[in-house]
């Protein structure tokens, strides 16, 4: 792979909660290549959204972020606020799960798009007006000229998500961070929005980091994926490889939890128990209390995320046994 667009190393995010400090993201490292779609997948509380937000310093005050995120030779984590403001919403844009809360309800959509154009482009007033309309066309909002003057509440859920994408694209970003962009949408609309994002990625030459809890969305849209559990990446690799032969017991369990065609009305290979709370992450491998492969070493030593085959990393003491089990399943 050529030099990555974004290179994250040892990213850690801590919060104060109930008088003590909890670690929401713990020593996370990954690269995003040019033009690739990286999926960050995990269940609630796994740290996937916090990872994304900590890159752009979108965390509540009091959060502490450590580590490195190299972007065009500069570290986003250490960058001064004023400088980061030019990157955020500029070369790196973000879209969110709930467009109704991410959009300003009292401003017409036009104003919200032009605001981003004013901050990140050199266009004059007339240029911004024309560009705003082009952007709505680009994201597939019909009758763009009229709809520019409407307010977010006049848009349907799918159209709001399109409007938010238009705002994110106003700055012609190199990297789009998408935090569960389709979770609140119906399945036929989700399908339209995911395809729109892929289409725009190709046309505009962007890279995308897509945070989702839905393995189906990862299978349909991502080139590489990272699976998160209790704040850490437990497995990372090409989507085909990870789906075909998972190397971490959690990934294996997650894939087994999703019903597949041909196994109707049989018991799913579920994972016992529930994900740990941030305040009580088990020592050793955080997954060990729920893991069918766990042994003494898992309860004592935290496994490193290390390569198992080229480009396929897992943080599991029993990666080989998991791989065998996944072939047998």
């Amino acid at each position: 792979m050529s030099a990555p667009l974004l290179s994250v190393r040892g990213l850690t995010a801590r919060f104060r909660a109930g008088g003590r400090e909890v670690t929401a993201v713990d020593d996370v490292s990954f690269d995003v290549g040019e033009g690739e779609v990286l999926g960050l997948v995990g269940e609630s509380g796994s740290g996937k959204s916090v990872t994304l937000r900590s890159l752009l310093r979108l965390l509540p005050s009091g959060a502490r972020v450590e580590g490195q995120a190299l972007w065009q030779g500069r570290d986003l984590v250490a960058m001064p606020d004023a400088r980061l403001r030019r990157v955020r919403g500029g070369a790196i844009s973000m879209i969110f799960q709930e467009p109704m809360t991410a959009l300003n309800p009292v401003l017409p959509v036009r104003v919200q798009i032009e605001e981003s154009l004013r901050a990140h482009t050199a266009l004059d007033r007339a240029g911004r007006r024309a560009r705003a309309r082009e952007l709505l066309d680009l994201v597939g909002i019909p009758d763009a000229a009229r709809r520019l003057d409407e307010y977010p509440h006049q848009f349907s859920g799918g159209m709001r998500q399109r409007a938010m994408i238009a705002i994110a694209l106003a700055s012609e970003p190199r990297l789009l961070l998408a935090d569960e962009p389709t979770t609140a949408l119906d399945v036929t609309i989700q399908d339209q929005i995911l395809k729109l994002i892929l289409d725009l990625k190709d046309r505009l030459g962007m890279s995308v980091v897509l945070v989702t809890h839905d393995l189906g969305v990862v299978a349909e849209t991502c080139s590489r994926m990272a699976v998160m559990y209790a704040g850490r990446i437990v497995e990372q690799g090409g989507v085909r490889e990870v789906f075909a032969s998972p190397r971490h017991a959690y990934t294996l369990g997650l894939l087994g939890s999703v019903p597949r065609a041909g196994t109707e009305r049989s018991a799913l290979r579920s994972i016992e128990g529930t994900p740990p709370g941030l305040a009580a992450i088990p020592p050793g491998c955080a997954f060990n209390p729920r893991c069918a492969f766990a042994t003494t070493v898992c309860r004592e030593v935290r496994p490193d995320l290390s390569p198992r085959t080229p480009g396929h990393l897992a943080a599991c003491h029993h990666s080989d046994r998991v791989a065998q089990a996944s072939l047998a399943a």
Partner: peptide, 11 residues
Amino acid sequence: LDVSVQAQVVN
């Protein structure tokens, strides 16, 4: 529910 917990309830 989360995916891994969904499977438990479905079972």
